[in-house]
Computed example of a mutant assay.
Amino acid sequence: MNVLQGIAAALTPLGLLWTVLIIGLATFLHELAHYALARWQGVAVKSFSIGMGPVLLRRDWRGTEWRLSLLPIGGYVEIDGMAPVEDGMNAQGQPVYRHPTHGFARLSAWGKVAVLLAGPLMNLLLAIGLMTVTFTAQGIPAPDRARIESVQAGSRAAALGLQAGDVVTAIDGQDIPDRVTVGGAAAPGWESLRDSLGRAGSRTLSVERGGQTRTVAFDWQPTVNGQRQLLGIRYGPDVQPASVPVALGTALTTTVEAVPQVLRAFGSLFARLFTLNLSSDESVSGPIGTAQIVSQAAATSPWALVQVGVLLNLSLAFFNLLPIPGLDGGRILLVLFGALRGRPLTFSQEQAVNLLGFGLVMTLMLFVVVRDVSRFF
């Protein structure tokens, strides 16, 4: 199987369609927020495009040209007063550019920050909203309780009387904590059951069933004659029903807890870029990896697609807030720097900084695509 066949086998037409729809919606709302904050402050928006490259469809409405472009890899809004203005010709007959003095350029520093911050904030709010809907409809996973989902017939677990629906609340006489360390990384407490079954000796499980608690005691050997032993259960977190306020609170907490994880993932990506490390890293996916994840989610359930939408919007929000020139975070940094300094950078200085940032972002995107493809060699 060659590389193209491997990539094609990992994707599905339905998965590709859902990938375009999920990314398209996230992009549309991101750019719509920029558009809305600019118009709210009286700044015109010349064009609004979903997709990049050649324009397929266009329509003028309320002073803006709305476009659908060929490549479904992003989008943009052309806000009046953000692009440089041509200011005559130099001695060599080449155009000279300067900072604009109208539209966006006339806004206060906080007005500019509001326009730039609106896009990432919209993606963040969308992720929180999707999590709130999910938690309200499906419940909230309890990190300190493990629910047995199935018991294998004829297994040790079946002989001990364990049943599907039993909830394990304590292991070896100790309540399951909210967080544990598994394989050097933080994990929900219910995953400590796996670690417990990896050690030989006497084990006890406190199990809730029908409102009553019983203790299951047994001697355990993780390996016998070199063969790994299995208890014979499949388990996951116990899911508790949640009202909308509780679901919203959990969504906000989950978002805050995701910040260091996302920053570590981006840090790892930059480290791999500078060392040209193409080894597999599941924390960040490129377009092919994302489409593959969406293809798997589409084959699982609608809620799996919603979870992908949450992750994509969180990633888009945090990535755009990175202080890299060319991204929203970098533009915000330049605006605040100019406000603190009392004057903005000169046009040539700002262009040089933006060019450097744009080159870094393009290099990063190319690296992610190359790493995606390298998995199929």
Rank of each mutant, 00 (worst) to 15 (best):
P120D: 06
G183N: 15
E257C: 05
N123I: 04
I128N: 11
S301V: 01
N90M: 08
R59N: 04
W66I: 01
V180A: 12
H99Q: 04
L360E: 11
P325L: 11
D195P: 04
R371D: 04
N2S: 09
V284N: 10
G342S: 10
L248F: 15
E149G: 01
T213L: 07
A185I: 08
L327Q: 10
G93A: 14
A91W: 01
R375I: 07
R179V: 15
Q296G: 14
V43D: 14
M362P: 01
V369F: 12
G103W: 01
Q261G: 09
T64E: 05
V370R: 04
L322Y: 10
A186H: 05
G119V: 02
F48I: 12
P237Q: 07
A44K: 14
F376I: 02
R62E: 06
V133T: 06
L230G: 05
L121A: 13
L116N: 11
K112R: 07
E86T: 09
A114M: 12
F367M: 06
A118S: 10
T12A: 04
G267Y: 07
A33R: 03
Q261W: 14
G198V: 06
N313F: 06
L345H: 02
I73S: 03
A298D: 03
D178I: 15
V373C: 13
V256W: 14
V3G: 02
F270R: 07
L125S: 11
M1P: 11
P325M: 09
R209W: 15
G42H: 05
S280V: 12
L355T: 15
A157L: 13
L68V: 06
I148R: 06
L364G: 08
I23Y: 13
G326I: 08
G53P: 14
L11Q: 00
A91M: 05
L231N: 12
G210W: 07
G189K: 13
I233F: 13
V246M: 05
L16W: 01
Y235L: 08
L252M: 14
G129E: 00
A26R: 02
V133R: 11
T250P: 03
Q163W: 13
G201I: 02
N320P: 08
R214H: 14
P141F: 11
L345P: 03
R264G: 10
R62P: 04
F270Y: 14
R98G: 05
L230K: 15
P188V: 03
G226Y: 10
V310G: 06
H30N: 01
W61N: 00
G338F: 05
V262N: 11
N354C: 00
V77S: 10
L314K: 08
V224R: 09
I23E: 11
F376W: 01
G6L: 07
D372T: 03
I7R: 14
T204S: 14
A258D: 10
Q138N: 11
H34L: 09
I79N: 01
L37G: 02
P188H: 12
M122V: 05
S108Y: 02
E350V: 03
Q240I: 15
Y35H: 15
R194S: 12
G329P: 09
S268M: 03
F377P: 09
I7E: 04
T134K: 07
L263Q: 03
S243N: 04
L345M: 10
F376T: 02
L322A: 07
L252Q: 08
P237F: 13
Q307P: 01
T134Q: 12
S285M: 11
